[in-house]
């Protein structure tokens, strides 16, 4: 069985606010990392491999992103993935989810010898763009079923069953492999790379592909070819500091009630 896990390299959301042990702002490695939500995807892929130890299962970590994105698949290798693919090409910069999903879909097929693998595993969302649409787009492009937003994953033979929470219900979804699976941060804590894992990762195969390797015309991708365009961005004005009171013998509740009344909430 072949599993491809899609992992994205994202800017660290906490980076610019993180502190060192000495309480100074950490400015050393604030740039980027394997999206923490995709660690859950790697974890589930590895768990499937471990639970089905009597089968031959290969886990490939795949990322599409700039030079530095190789860190994302390296981490996946350290966690236990067997091999990795990094698709990098200047022409990809600025692509939207539609473009990214095209590159991912072609890379997924190539990584599996030209056809869809048994399982494509994705995270809940990328922590930067966060659209939660790439897994559905991959399913559409690969012509596969999608079994998405799993909180619990079970597999047996070629069957996959997941449990998930929607707004209105708890559901059990079933599908037959090959399929696209996405998992949430409820699916189980991701492991840390062990020292052994970190050493072993250095010897694992890691391939770098360009659009040319995937047979994709560069003109289809990048900022100018995206089907959407961001026209303006603005930092949200910082919130003005509010009033903070200390509660003493019920004074806090009264003050808060006055505030809520002044805003017409009561």
């Amino acid at each position: 069985m072949n599993i491809v896990v899609c992992v994205k390299y994202v800017p660290d959301a906490t980076g610019d606010r993180r502190f060192e042990g000495d309480n100074t702002v950490d400015r050393v490695d604030v740039d980027g990392l394997l999206s923490e939500l995709d660690e859950y995807a790697v974890e589930q892929a590895l768990q499937i491999k471990e639970k089905r130890a009597d089968e031959e299962i290969e886990v490939t970590a795949l990322t599409v992103g700039p030079e530095k994105a190789v860190d994302a698949v390296r981490k996946a290798l350290q966690m236990g993935a067997d091999k990795a693919v990094h698709v990098v090409d200047d022409a990809i910069a600025g692509s939207d989810a539609i473009g990214t999903s095209l590159v991912l879909a072609e890379a997924i097929k190539k990584a599996n010898g030209g056809t869809a693998p048994d399982l494509v595993v994705c995270g809940l969302a990328s922590t930067d763009a966060g659209m939660s649409v790439v897994p559905a787009m991959l399913a559409e492009r690969l012509g596969l079923p999608q079994v998405t937003l799993a909180a619990v994953v079970e597999s047996q033979g070629n069957q996959v069953r997941i449990k998930r929470d929607t707004d209105t219900a708890t559901e059990v979804i079933g599908g037959t492999m090959p399929l696209v699976l996405s998992v949430t941060d409820q699916s189980g804590e991701a492991r840390y790379p062990s020292f052994k894992g970190i050493m072993a990762a250095k010897k694992k195969p890691l391939e770098t592909w360009s659009l040319g390797d995937l047979g994709i015309d560069a003109g289809q991708l990048g900022l100018s070819s995206a089907w959407t365009a961001v026209e303006e961005t603005a930092a949200r004005p910082p919130r003005t500091a509010g009033e903070i009171v200390k509660d003493e013998d019920g004074s806090g509740a009264k003050a808060l009630a006055d505030f809520l009344a002044s805003k017409k909430f009561i």
């Binding site: 989810a97 539609i98 649409v133 089907w227 959407t228």
Partner: peptide, 18 residues
């Protein structure tokens, strides 16, 4: 969550931006 996934598939089918 469901509608975003529907929209994602639809965007590719209709070759439209999302």
């Amino acid at each position: 969550a469901e509608n975003k996934e529907i929209a994602g598939r639809l965007a590719i089918k209709l070759e439209s931006g999302l």
